[in-house]
Simulated assay, not measured.
Amino acid sequence: MVPLRDNNPISITPYVTYGLFIANIAVFVYQLSLAKPQLEQFFHVAAMVPCELSGSCPVIGQLPEWITLFTSQFLHGGFLHLAGNMLFLWIFGNNIEDRLGHIKYLIFYLGCGALAALAQWFFSQNSGIPSLGASGAIAGIMGAYILRFPHAKVLTLVPLGFFITTFQLPAYLFLGFWFLQQAFFSFASLGVRTNVGMEGGGIAYWAHAGGFVVGAVLGPMLGLMRRD
């Protein structure tokens, strides 16, 4: 299932969402300018490397490792990785920014991303594979969205064999299914050896599930459920 749009109006211009969108694309364009050895070096410096954060392997680069909990949120492993994250950010981020306001929303986004990265680290503390992407922060947005707009209709692209159709699904069904899927694969990935950028064959499932839960907790603390 792929979301196309939701039907929630917003009352403010989502400047932070636009800024995050542009920042992620700008960093990805910079990544494209790097040769493969330079790109791998860049990932080891700016992405979250679990064993470096744990102190169980040498740290590459000059950045304090805790900073990579934030810098890693703006790195992506490929075009599809970036495109998928930006699609979810574009669809769900503006409504959460509308409810929290610009400053709280930015704090919320970065906080969800950092704590999601820590969830991934907890289950792979000795891994030397860089973990990167905006997925954890955007999962936090989705966790907040399902609380604040559970009955909002999400236009969803659904492949049915050789055919593709669209359905109007309530947010609690679309996002609830997504979360259960991430949670299932999180537990299924325990003990699985990986060889691409993140756990579970290239996907940081623990960051996804952890970010979703963090968003559902942190959002109300920042005023998500306030009445207009």
Rank of each mutant, 00 (worst) to 15 (best):
T166Y: 10
F79G: 09
V154T: 02
S33I: 07
P130G: 01
G223M: 01
F88P: 02
A183P: 07
G215S: 04
P3W: 02
G143P: 06
R226K: 12
A46D: 11
R99I: 04
L106K: 02
Q181H: 11
L132M: 15
V29H: 09
A46Q: 06
E40Y: 07
I141D: 09
I164Q: 14
A204R: 00
L155H: 02
Y15W: 15
P3H: 03
L4K: 06
E65G: 06
L63R: 01
A26P: 11
F79V: 05
L32K: 11
M225V: 01
L118N: 06
P64A: 09
M221W: 15
G140I: 13
A117N: 15
V213A: 12
Y18R: 13
V2Q: 09
I107F: 14
C112K: 13
F74K: 10
G211E: 02
L39S: 11
V213Q: 05
L180C: 07
L173P: 00
A216E: 09
I107N: 07
Y18K: 07
H151N: 08
T194R: 00
P3G: 08
G191M: 02
F43M: 11
R193A: 05
G211R: 08
G101H: 10
H76Y: 08
E65K: 15
L110Q: 14
S189I: 00
L34K: 12
F28C: 09
Q120S: 15
L224I: 01
L160M: 04
L63G: 03
R148F: 02
N195L: 01
L110F: 15
P37H: 07
Q73M: 15
Y109L: 13
F162H: 13
L100D: 08
P58T: 05
L53S: 05
A171M: 05
G210K: 06
I67R: 15
P130V: 06
K36C: 00
A171P: 01
F184T: 10
I67F: 15
L75W: 14
P159M: 06
F28A: 08
L63A: 05
Y109F: 15
G101D: 02
I96H: 10
C57H: 04
L175P: 00
A207C: 04
P3F: 04
F179T: 06
A144M: 05
A171Q: 06
M1D: 00
S11Q: 09
A26K: 10
L82Q: 09
G111Y: 13
L118P: 12
Y30Q: 13
I67L: 15
I10P: 03
I129C: 01
F187Y: 04
F79N: 08
V196F: 06
S72P: 12
L115Q: 09
V27E: 08
Y172S: 04
P170V: 00
L87P: 11
P170F: 02
G101T: 03
L4R: 03
Q38F: 07
M225A: 03
V16T: 12
F108P: 08
G93F: 14
T17A: 15
F185E: 03
I60R: 07
A26S: 10
N8R: 05
K104I: 01
R99V: 05
